[in-house]
Simulated assay, not measured.
Amino acid sequence: MKKLLNTVYVTSEGAALKKDGENLVAEVEGAEKARVPLHMLASIVVFGPILVSPALIGVCAERGITLALLDRAGRFQARIEGPVSGNVLLRRAQYRLADRAEDVVRSIVMGKIANQRAVIRRALRDYGDEMPSETRDALAAATERMAMILRRVQLKDETVDLMRGSEGEAATLYFGVFGHLIRSPDAELRWTGRSRRPPLDGMNALLSFLYTLLTHDCRSACEAIGVDPAVGFLHRDRPGRPSLALDLMEELRAPLADRLALSLVNRRQLRAGDFRRMEGGAVLMTDDARRLVLTAWQERKREERLHPFLQEKAPFGLVPYLQAQMLARHLRGDIDAYPPWFWS
């Protein structure tokens, strides 16, 4: 159990949560592991099979403490809350801001570009001495150009459409040199460019699968916090599309999904034989490869990093929830701006 901001996250399978006086108590196999005063909480988020006592559910409903239930993979299942809730006010604020969200879009785009740039810079730092000079020069040029785009996005006169264009320009630069970051000897895993529907090579199939997992986590975060996952700021509204979840995942794609994909391929945990080409040209992962990636994804989400805004360590898996919380705080007026998550 970990308390961040005013939310408790419970990730230990088999844990039991109960009310003891004015406290939330977490037990594992009958032994008390944590105790938090109820008056300090606004929400509780539980992952997987965790027992929650009726008394705790009752007091949470009575005091306006939201209880969000997610499955093992972090997919949203349900939210339990009492009759008085601030979600309607939160969502009204979200809808009002949706059409004039330059500051939020600026934060999201800056976070995304900075994190893509950090992935390239990390590769240069770790493997630059082993790269041909042409490759080093191409990567260095991409980081310099992305730094220029970042400076441009910071200008207050950038409209949302201009920032969308800057985000697209940076993505083109990033994926234009992405192949230089792949160190696998398998020719089938060479990078030829981003392809999505369908993915046309193994690396794109892997990225698309990881992006799907990340989208699920970001959508669950929106549902758990109480914002509307369908109404975004960077992504335009479209029926059936979780635009806000896609907004939240943009700054997390590079450090969570792209870095994991590169690690799995460069460490040769995934090889060409882990992918199969279908009749229509689409490339899919085998069942065994999918299981390996799911295991690696869960392990990745347990890794802790210092949150640049909170200045506190948090597991990667909780970052979407923390970002959704801070977006909600910005919508309520508790903080002046939405702080992006920068990876270093």
Rank of each mutant, 00 (worst) to 15 (best):
G168I: 04
S166N: 12
A245L: 06
D161T: 13
T172Q: 11
I182V: 15
R241S: 14
T172H: 11
E251G: 05
V160W: 08
F178W: 12
S208Q: 03
G202L: 11
T172R: 13
N204F: 02
R238D: 07
L162H: 09
G193I: 00
C222E: 04
W191A: 01
D237S: 12
L234D: 14
R164S: 03
Y211M: 09
T192R: 11
G240Q: 09
G168L: 05
G168V: 00
A170Q: 09
V160C: 03
M249I: 10
D186I: 03
L206P: 01
L207K: 14
F175G: 00
R197P: 00
R236T: 15
G226R: 00
A171G: 04
R236K: 14
A245V: 04
T192A: 12
A221I: 06
I225A: 09
D237N: 12
V227E: 11
L234A: 15
R190Y: 04
Y211R: 07
M203W: 06
R238A: 13
R183M: 11
S208E: 05
R183K: 08
C218H: 04
P185T: 10
S184W: 01
M203E: 02
S184D: 06
D161E: 14
S166H: 13
Y211I: 13
E223I: 09
T172G: 01
R197C: 05
E223D: 15
R194I: 03
A171E: 00
P239I: 06
G165Y: 04
E169D: 14
V177Y: 00
E167T: 05
H216M: 11
G193E: 01
D237E: 15
P239R: 06
D201T: 08
G165T: 10
L189R: 02
I225W: 08
H180W: 09
A170E: 12
P199H: 04
F233T: 01
L248S: 06
L189Y: 00
E251D: 11
E223R: 15
L248T: 00
I225E: 14
S184R: 04
D161V: 13
P199V: 05
E188D: 13
F175P: 07
E188A: 13
F209E: 07
D228Q: 13
L246H: 01
P229N: 05
A230T: 15
H180N: 11
P239E: 07
R194Q: 04
T212N: 08
A170V: 13
L248F: 03
M203D: 03
P199S: 05
M249N: 06
A171C: 00
P242L: 11
D228G: 13
G193W: 02
I182A: 01
H235C: 13
P199A: 07
G179R: 02
L200W: 09
D186V: 08
L173I: 07
T212V: 10
A170D: 10
E223P: 07
G168R: 00
L207P: 08
L214N: 04
L248P: 02
Y211K: 05
A187Y: 07
L206K: 00
T212M: 11
M249P: 02
P185L: 10
E169G: 05
S166W: 11
A205S: 11
I225S: 07
A221R: 04
S208H: 08
R194N: 03
G202D: 11
R241Y: 14
A171T: 02
